[in-house]
Amino acid sequence: MNRWLPKTYLTLVYVLLYLPILVLVVFSFNSSRTGYRWGGLSLQWYESLFNNHAMVQAMWNSLWLALTAATISTIIGALTALALHRYRFRGKRVLRGMLFVVMMSPEIVLAISLLALFLLVGLQLGFISLLLAHVTFCLPFVVITVMARLSGFDESLPEAARDLGASDFTMTRTVLIPVIMPALLAGWLLGFTLSLDDVVVSTFVSGPSYEILPLRIYSMVRVGLKPEVNALGTLLLVFSLAMLMLSQWILTRSKR
C-alpha cells in the first residue's frame, strides 16, 4: 500500500480536530466585537473577562470544587483499587461491575438520579451536592488508572514486606503507595479535568449559592457569539494542556 496514504489521512483528521480550537484561539485576540471579521490584535476580551466579578468568582468556585472532588475521589478510588487488587471478598465482581456501569452510564442518567436523592434527603443544592456528584463520576476513572498500574506490579514486594512482619496498613503505606504514586497523580489530574469540564451533571445538582464555570459559560454561549468566551476557552485550553503535559511527564518518568 502507498506509504503516504495513511500519513495524509492522519494529518487530515488532526487538522479537522484542531481547526475549531485554532479558530477559537485566534479569535480570542480579535478586537472586533461582531464575531467573524478580523479587526486587529487586542487583549480586551481577556481584560473584560478578569473584570467580570461573577466570572472570576465562578472560576475560583470551579477550581476549588475540582480540587476537592479530585482529591476525595483519588483517595477512595486508590483504596478501592488496592482492595480489588489485593483481597478476595464476596461481591468483588459486583463491585467491579458497578464501577464499570457508573463509568459507562450516560451522564444525564447519573444526574437525575442524584437530583432525586438530594431532594429526597433534603440536601440543599450547592457545593456539597456538586462535590458528592463529581466524586461519584470521577471515582471509576481513578480506580481504573490505579488498577492498571497495580496489574503490572511485582507481587513479591508486598509479600516480602509482610514476611518481615509489616501489618497491612504499614505495608500499604510504605510499599504500595510509592509504587502507585504516578497512577494516583494521573488519576487525580483526570478527575480534576473531568470535574472542571462537566456540564450535564452540574446543570442538575447545582444551586445559586455555588456557581461554577461551565454553567456560566453555558449561559454565555446560549446568548450568542461572545468574544469573552473565546478568551476563556483559550485560557482553559492552555490550562488543560499544562495539566495533561504534567500527567504525561509523571507517567513517563515513572516508567524509567
Binding site: P20, D197, L236, S240
Partner: peptide, 29 residues
C-alpha cells in the same frame, strides 16, 4: 499522536461546541 488526540478531550467541551458555531454559522468562517 495519542497525546495530541487527548488534548482536545481535556479541553472544555462547551467551549469546543461553541467553537464549531464560529465555523458553521451562516456568516461563519
Amino acid at each position: 499522536l495519542i497525546f495530541l488526540l487527548i488534548v482536545p478531550f481535556w479541553t472544555n467541551s462547551l467551549v469546543r461546541t461553541y467553537a464549531l458555531k464560529l465555523l458553521l454559522a451562516t456568516n461563519g468562517l
